[in-house]
């Protein structure tokens, strides 16, 4: 089975973000998408903690303690950037002003449900952050994740078993093995990572993949 690296996956997602989009990148793997935007496109990145126009990581020694993104990494400003407070930041998200959000997930179901904030382990404190606000407000939700858990169990399911973040809102899922759209009938194949067959990917997917 051919599996994309995290960098290749980030580059694949970046290809689908149109010029002129306002985009929110979730913490973890999705933050890397900004490094792979194709030449000639201007994408404005929103970070929930109060900035549109997130710029690249500062050079070592030039970090500003009060300039961070949602992943708490040091950032700079891009041309056209603006700062704002939290109530405004979430008005941008909830109010439908952001075009695309790229999120990680524990599970995605064939009806477009997503689970990415809590597990069933009661000792593991739940942490929702801004995920629930993003999924209700942003019209296009891309999920970027490994196709299966580390133990090989599927993350693309007939229905989620973990507590939900949002209901029926995922547009497209990018995994290391395939790209799948959420269609009325369920997961619909967009493309396979070169070298993989539908049968191989289906065997690692709980829900049916429609082609």
């Amino acid at each position: 089975m051919n599996s994309l690296t995290d960098a290749q996956l980030a580059a694949r997602v970046a290809r689908d973000i149109p010029d002129g989009s306002y985009v929110n990148l979730g913490i973890g793997k999705p933050t890397h998408v900004s490094s792979y935007v194709p030449e000639g496109r201007e994408i404005i990145y929103h970070s929930e903690n109060g900035i549109i126009g997130v710029g690249p990581t500062p050079p070592e020694g030039e970090e500003d303690f009060e300039m961070i993104d949602a992943s708490k990494r040091y950032i700079t400003t891009a041309p056209g950037a603006a700062f704002f407070e939290h109530a405004d930041s979430f008005a941008m998200m909830r109010g439908g002003h952001i075009d695309i959000a790229v999120l990680g997930a524990y599970q995605v179901a064939e009806n477009g449900d997503i689970a990415n904030w809590a597990t069933l382990d009661e000792k593991f404190p739940p942490a929702v952050g801004g995920a629930m606000d993003l999924v209700v407000g942003v019209p296009t939700i891309f999920v970027m994740m490994r196709h299966t858990n580390r133990d090989g169990t599927p993350k693309l399911l007939r229905s989620c078993t973990y507590p939900l973040t949002g209901l029926g809102i995922v547009s497209r899922v990018y995994t290391d093995l395939a790209v799948l759209d959420l269609a009325p009938e369920g997961f619909r194949l967009v493309e396979l990572t070169p070298g993989n067959t539908l049968e191989e990917v289906q065997a690692l997917t709980d829900a049916k993949i429609h082609s």
């Binding site: 939290h86 109530a87 979430f90 998200m93 909830r94 929702v128 952050g129 801004g130 606000d133 209700v136």
Partner: peptide, 23 residues
């Protein structure tokens, strides 16, 4: 949820008795 946290705080400061959110 983070946006609900911000808005609940905003509501308190703005004298709003509660609000409806899809979140």
């Amino acid at each position: 949820p983070q946006g609900t946290l911000a808005e609940r705080i905003r509501a308190a400061g703005a004298g709003i008795g509660g609000f409806l959110t899809p979140t």
